[in-house]
Design a protein around this nucleic acid. Structure first.
Lengths: 106, 106
DNA sequence: ACAGGCTACCTTGTGAAACAAAGTACCTTG
DNA sequence: CAAGGTACTTTGTTTCACAAGGTAGCCTGT
């Protein structure tokens, strides 16, 4: 997949998933991997940025299946950010599709 | 507008416009500007990359309204590339929307 | 004649972010 | 104890959008 297309949408995807419940990083990687190619090297730095920006919080939970898991929880400001990104995403998709449509059938 | 979202779609937009007829750079900037914020500093380097990759050709035409214009023409390989990018774009949009939908109403 | 403004092109430097690759460490099973 | 899955982190590379600035042609008004 064109890796450039993912720019800017991953943040929205992560925030959207966290809106329906807390997740740990490895789980997010796996969930998102079902929809698009993604690696840990992309997700973990993103989680750090999101936490630095205050849109998510994290907490550690011990696990019997391996090392401790770092769970992420979306904050109030994170929910607002997600709504903002969501509407930007829809506007953007519509803009591009409108531009592409001008060329249909020619 | 989130500048990261544009990644990878500008190439598709340019190729799509060139599919319906030759354009010069400044014209492309103005046409695309109607749909999304874009500047010359993004488009001109992109045109150079596209030409280096053989998906477009260019030719100079004198103008009475200012300096000479560099027109761009899509090549056969450019049309193939455009079709490829177009289908990637639709698949990508569907993937993201599917992921986002999993969170609707929660 | 020349200043201002539009047209048109190009380049440089900066920053954001996706990714590969590698490292660390825990647990279970053979 | 080796192998493989789970889980987190960091480093370096690459791509590309953008701001800012530069060059130069054309036209209009004074």
């Amino acid at each position: 997949m064109n890796s450039q297309l993912k720019r800017g949408t991953l943040e929205l995807c992560v925030l959207s998933l966290l809106c329906s419940g807390d997740c740990y990083g490895y789980e997010l990687v796996n969930r998102i991997s079902e929809c698009m190619q993604i690696t840990e090297g992309t997700v973990y730095p993103l989680m750090k940025r999101l936490k630095d920006n205050g849109v998510i919080d994290s907490y550690i939970v011990e696990s019997q299946e391996g090392p401790p898991r770092k769970y992420y929880k979306i904050t109030e400001s994170g929910r607002a950010e997600k709504e903002k990104l969501l509407s930007e995403w829809f506007v953007f998709v519509d803009s591009v599709n409108a531009l592409l449509k001008g060329d249909n059938g020619k």
